Simulated assay, not measured.
Amino acid sequence: MKLPSHSRYAPSAIPTRPTYRWPNGASLAVVVCNNIEHFAYRAGMGSDSAQPNAPQSFRNYAWRDYGNRVGLWNMLEMLDELQIPSAHNVNSAALDYMPEIAEALRKRGDEFIGHGRSNAERQDTMWEEDERRLIIETRDAITRHAGVAPTGWLGPYLAQSHVTLDLLREEGFRYMMDLPADDQPFWMATRAGPILSVPYSIELNDSPAMVFRQHSGREFADMIVDQFDEMLEQSARRPLVCSVVLHTFVVGQPFRLRPLRAALRHILGHRDRIWLCRPGELAAYAAGLPRGVVPGSEMLDSEMPGPEMLGG
């Protein structure tokens, strides 16, 4: 039987791969990734705090807007308190809507990652020309606010068309986080050269966990601790990436912030054994590893971007 397939990356069983270490000899990299989103008023797409597939309304628009008005600032204060570097998947519309956001992220030295124009739309249903325009407009707006072009991408709703990877590479992006296929980075083929997949959890992600599956903030914090502890043990055998995925309008709520802080403190209790980094730093490090170490690199040897192209 021949199933529909793709030619972006080859099968690769994790125990069969070469081993390596992250900086400072760490075997587990930890990435804290936050989502900053802006939505259309009473139109387009958007999640709801009370029920799935609810129609767009002033109420759920305002619930999501809490993330930009309050939740983000709660989270940044917590990250400052714990001295955690972070990266932010940003809708470019959020930066236009509230320029104070970009100023705060620049002050922290955090990374801006392309996350589309708005989460009121998704790109997988667009014509190629329209999708390219979305990517270009997002990139250029973030560059204007951040002062530097983003090298990473996370699509709204992690949605892709059949040419998304090609368009991202052609428009200057060097890594993406849409594919929850692995706990290590791996290279993928595009018509313009390779692009790196950086691990990004759809399981350890506050939006699916608390908005759609209705887990409590404390249950989500327990998930973080369990995921981290298990991966720390597993990393004795191979290098891994533990990503913690957050949204300002979800964990930015005070009652959820408190257990989250405790979970992050648990991770920091092992700071001497981990590499706490941003996705762009991880991508740059992976790009600098010898050919044949990161899955996919052996097939794309002549076209591999160096770490300097990824901000390293």
Results as ranks from 00 to 15, higher is better:
residue 200 Y to I: 08
residue 246 L to V: 08
residue 200 Y to P: 03
residue 181 A to V: 11
residue 88 H to Q: 11
residue 191 R to A: 13
residue 207 S to F: 12
residue 137 E to I: 06
residue 126 M to E: 12
residue 128 E to S: 10
residue 206 D to G: 03
residue 274 I to F: 00
residue 36 I to V: 07
residue 288 G to Q: 05
residue 119 N to H: 15
residue 163 V to C: 05
residue 225 V to A: 06
residue 217 G to N: 03
residue 110 D to A: 08
residue 120 A to D: 15
residue 119 N to F: 09
residue 81 E to M: 06
residue 73 W to C: 07
residue 227 Q to A: 12
residue 268 L to G: 00
residue 233 E to C: 08
residue 6 H to T: 03
residue 146 A to H: 12
residue 177 M to C: 05
residue 53 N to A: 14
residue 182 D to K: 00
residue 18 P to Q: 13
residue 54 A to S: 11
residue 155 G to W: 05
residue 260 L to G: 04
residue 86 S to E: 13
residue 301 D to I: 11
residue 124 D to R: 02
residue 215 H to M: 14
residue 261 R to P: 01
residue 311 G to L: 01
residue 299 M to W: 12
residue 262 A to V: 07
residue 48 D to H: 07
residue 50 A to R: 15
residue 271 R to H: 08
residue 108 R to C: 04
residue 164 T to R: 02
residue 51 Q to E: 15
residue 199 P to A: 05
residue 305 P to S: 00
residue 40 A to Y: 15
residue 173 F to C: 10
residue 255 F to G: 06
residue 233 E to G: 08
residue 107 K to L: 11
residue 24 N to C: 09
residue 268 L to H: 00
residue 210 M to H: 02
residue 297 S to H: 01
residue 189 A to I: 13
residue 226 D to S: 13
residue 192 A to R: 11
residue 90 V to Q: 10
residue 89 N to K: 02
residue 271 R to D: 08
residue 147 G to C: 06
residue 203 E to P: 05
residue 115 H to I: 02
residue 130 D to E: 13
residue 237 R to W: 05
residue 15 P to D: 12
residue 271 R to S: 11
residue 81 E to Q: 06
residue 121 E to V: 11
residue 158 L to T: 13
residue 304 M to Q: 04
residue 235 S to A: 09
residue 185 P to H: 01
residue 279 P to E: 07
residue 23 P to H: 00
residue 277 C to Q: 02
residue 165 L to Y: 02
residue 55 P to Y: 06
residue 26 A to H: 00
residue 114 G to L: 07
residue 238 R to Y: 09
residue 217 G to P: 08
residue 12 S to T: 10
residue 52 P to Q: 07
residue 7 S to I: 10
residue 141 A to L: 14
residue 184 Q to A: 13
residue 158 L to P: 04
residue 92 S to N: 04
residue 256 R to T: 01
residue 144 R to V: 04
residue 7 S to D: 14
residue 66 Y to F: 07
residue 301 D to W: 10
residue 175 Y to W: 07
residue 298 E to R: 01
residue 69 R to N: 12
residue 34 N to M: 12
residue 258 R to D: 15
residue 62 A to N: 13
residue 88 H to I: 12
residue 264 L to Q: 04
residue 236 A to C: 08
residue 51 Q to W: 15
residue 142 I to K: 04
residue 67 G to V: 02
residue 163 V to F: 04
residue 229 D to C: 06
residue 251 V to Y: 07
residue 64 R to C: 04
residue 178 D to V: 04
residue 229 D to Y: 09
residue 247 H to N: 01
residue 16 T to L: 14
residue 147 G to K: 06
residue 247 H to V: 03
residue 289 L to M: 07
residue 252 G to T: 00
residue 76 L to W: 03
residue 266 H to V: 01
residue 133 R to T: 10
residue 82 L to I: 02
residue 123 Q to K: 13
residue 59 R to Y: 15
residue 133 R to D: 12
residue 152 G to L: 10
residue 310 L to C: 08
residue 25 G to Q: 03
residue 267 I to L: 14
residue 4 P to G: 09
residue 8 R to I: 13
residue 199 P to N: 03
residue 12 S to Q: 12
residue 40 A to W: 15
residue 248 T to K: 09
residue 118 S to N: 11
residue 11 P to N: 09
residue 254 P to M: 08
residue 134 L to M: 11
